[in-house]
Amino acid sequence: MMPLRVLLGALGVAVGLYGAWLLLDRQETVQVVEVAVWFLVGVLVHDAVVAPLALLAGAALPRLLPVAARGPAVVGLVVVTTVTVVAIPVLGRFGALPDNLTLLDRPYVAGWAVLVGLIAAAAAAVAVRNVRQASSAAGGPQA
């Protein structure tokens, strides 16, 4: 396995360096500097903003929901948050052009709200079922 790994690693370095050369060779310095800024900001936004927010959500969950509801809530949150990230460019309609009515021509906020509503409803339905099952397994609500 070791020769294969060395070969793969060497190939990876070569391919990556080719990409770096493509980047540096075909653009002006000011353009490359902006790419570098974007490169770093992307990582920073994830590591210093997105990931800590996920940590906070993970810490808050047990305080807000009963055990039986946490599973469906996590599944729902994974789907809603990641799909929302995908939706950012259309929700903001940042690329809309006044002279092109065929571009960004849907009611995105409404569509997103319906999508989130459906996912939340499905998660809530499973959560309610789980809580009921948990309480009946424990002998029903205490009198």
Binding site: G12, V15, G16, Y18, G19, L23, Q27, V30, E34
Partner: peptide, 24 residues
């Protein structure tokens, strides 16, 4: 300032190269 087409193409090679190293 940067060109999407040129940059997206160049960084694609960087990403695949780094991915191969990561797999190795």
């Amino acid at each position: 300032s940067f060109s999407f087409r040129t940059t997206h193409f160049a960084i694609a090679w960087v990403a695949i190269g780094a991915l191969l190293v990561h797999i190795a």
